[in-house]
Nucleic acid binder design. Sequence first.
DNA 1: GTATGCTTTCGGC
DNA 2: TTACGGCCGAAAGCATAC
Length: 366
Amino acid sequence: MDHVIGHIDLDYFYAQVEEVENPSIRGRPVIVCVFSGRTEDSGVVSTSNYVARNLGVKSGMPIVLAKKKLQGTEAVIVRMEHEKYEAVSERIMESLSGQVDELEQTGIDEAFFDLTESTNGDYEAARRIAEKIKETIMLDEHLTCSIGIARSKSVAKLGSDSAKPGGLSVISPSATESFLSPLPVTKLYGVGPKTADLLGQMNVKTAGDLSRADPGELGARFGRKLAAYLLAASTGTDDDPIVKRTGHAQFTRIITLKRNTKDPQEAFSQFSEAFGDLHGRLVETGKSFKTISAIGILTDLTTHTKSKTFEVPVGDSAFTQDLILDLFTSLSRSVQKDFRRVGLRLSVLTQDESQKSLSEYLEPVK
DNA sequence: GTATGCTTTCGGC
DNA sequence: TTACGGCCGAAAGCATAC
């Protein structure tokens, strides 16, 4: 039987949540911003609504630049409140998980889901379920979303993209080839500028070109494994399963310094509050980590890291000031330039068994 | 050669 | 003219082991 896979994406999520909270701002440009605190307006746009996007605002754009683009409009500038969006997201994901066979949440505003069993491979049945999902989210939260239904994850994701904003795209197995073939290879998941460039040298520009490419030549250029994946992606025959995700694979905390420095001690002293937050997360969740990375972002905005991996997972007692100072020192020595921002990442997180049930209760997926 | 595991960088939102 | 966050997961790059 054909698989029936869905991908759902909440439209311009943070900004839409702000519109729902304050409907009077609808129709005006809305930008949700992260303020770094360095100067009054330093920071970037996290998300904006389509009114702002149509005026040239993009995610990641400096706030001052976005303000320029929005000069002369009745723009609404909102400070991002992550906990608020997290709460809305959790309610939606909880409801969704009851409407599908299996849910794989991949971000605060998106998820893959499986409908193979409940639809018995019937794409019209899947369409009705998707319409019901959209209705439910509208009734419960007054939010629009985009959904793609297809035979694989990568095609479902391309489908939800093509349906944005607010649409539903059902791509049956028989329609997959004509949907994919005209798409430029850069649209395919896993094909970045580098891979696209190499493909271009083989005169492969679209997914259709790729599906007809010589497997031997692809294998020679990209290695057998990547070549096999590329061919599968070009025909929508990739078959990654929907896997329910639990908890986080890593914790990261990054701050912008009040003033640039290469001195590890000074960087650490400004980081101490964030250090406490991370320490708290470790204690609350009862997680252990194997790898810790110091992160430094320089004045030219390039990112540099220095990691240490323990042989066995360690808990909060190993997360010490000395360890972090050592990492920052080593990082500072290797880059020899001033930091603008610094951070820490804890990864390869594992659950401390004795606290498993408690932490799962405190942290139910994302 | 291929698998595995670790460090670093990339890219999405 | 420039302007510039804080997360996350995955890819890329490298070393090592069979």
